[in-house]
């Protein structure tokens, strides 16, 4: 637990509360070493689905993109299933705790890549479609999207992924629903173009580094990676257009990053996300994974190896 000098001196709260301490005048919030953990054991960096957004009853390919320590191999099996229980109202988490315990709807196959069909009732359980008994329709996220949770039991842990499903809007005015059906373009996964380092005043491909060196890095994507889309804002009666935000998660097998994620908000049209990375003091080979995710939930993963060697 660390306390910055100014915190010790003035004892001031850092970070918004969203909880019991909102409004507290003075306190000391401990700081953890929350730098991105190194990839020291196999983990799922992301789940990539094809297509990135699907309607109920359509086929999708689910692929668990793995981040493995150098020399390690993924140990199966991968047990996939669709969750059936939505998040209780008011629960601040993105997935129901019950999803971690229930059997769900099993998906055939036990590999890192499986084929599945989106459940026919995905928009009724997790979306706006009416259910019998007059139950409350699910709420969308801030991009107007609804998501079918998917659980993956693998690598000794329990993972989940939210697959964006395309649903009609039965409670919206019919002309708005019709316009949305005509104009909405389903999401596609964004792709990274390059990983670059800043050296000698220019950005160049990141292929090697010196032991102990701290480098400015950037992940670059094509402008079309941030897609435009229309959606129905909550409480609105007409469609609105917006642009995706993009976010990069940075993973590596050694060294350390300044931040574990960075990106661009939807109003920021730049096509890069920056970070700083410091190499270990000893020469080695470092494997990087960059997970690029858009605000509608689709991801892609790029992997690259970099030699850390003395000049």
């Amino acid at each position: 637990m660390k306390h910055a000098p100014w915190e010790r001196r003035l004892g001031l709260v850092r970070a918004p509360g969203y909880g019991a301490l909102a409004g507290l005048l003075m306190a000391c919030v401990p700081a953890f070493d929350d730098r991105a953990p190194l990839v020291t054991e196999p983990q799922i960096a992301a789940v990539v689905t094809t297509p990135a957004e699907a309607r109920p009853r359509t086929a999708v390919t689910l692929e668990a993109k793995l981040a493995l320590p150098l020399g390690a191999e993924a140990a199966g099996p991968f047990a996939w299933s669709f969750c059936t229980t939505p998040v209780p109202l008011g629960d601040p988490r993105p997935i129901a705790a019950a999803c971690g315990a229930e059997a769900g709807l099993p998906i055939l196959g036990n590999g890192a890549t499986v084929q599945a069909t989106v459940p026919s009732d995905a928009c009724a359980r997790f979306g706006p479609d009416p259910r019998s008994g007059g139950s409350r329709a699910a709420d969308p996220d801030d991009t107007g999207g609804y998501y079918q949770p998917i659980r993956v039991d693998a690598l000794g842990a329990r993972w989940f992924y939210l697959l964006r499903v395309t649903c009609e809007l039965p409670n919206a005015p019919s002309d708005v629903a019709r316009q949305l059906a005509q104009e909405y373009v389903p999401n596609t996964a964004p792709a990274l173009a390059a990983l670059e380092k800043f050296e000698d005043g220019v950005w160049v491909a990141f292929e090697h580094a010196r032991p102990g060196q701290t480098l400015a890095l950037r992940a670059r994507w094509q402008p079309e990676a941030a897609e435009d889309f229309v959606y129905l804002p909550v409480g609105a009666h007409s469609l609105a257009a917006r642009r995706e935000s993009l976010r990069v998660r940075w993973l590596s097998t050694s060294g350390h990053f300044a931040v574990d994620a960075s990106g661009r908000s939807e109003s920021d049209t730049q096509t890069t996300a920056e970070n700083a990375w410091t190499a270990d003091a000893t020469p080695n080979t470092v494997r990087f994974w960059l997970v690029l995710t858009d605000s509608r939930g689709a991801s892609s993963v790029e992997q690259t190896d970099v030699d850390v060697r003395a000049p």
């Binding site: 799922i44 992301a46 329990r158 993972w159 939210l162 976010r247 998660r249």
Partner: peptide
């Protein structure tokens, strides 16, 4: 739980 969508752990 591990969120493979955005890498954020979800508490139980």
């Amino acid at each position: 739980l591990h969120d493979a969508s955005d890498g954020t752990p979800v508490p139980l």
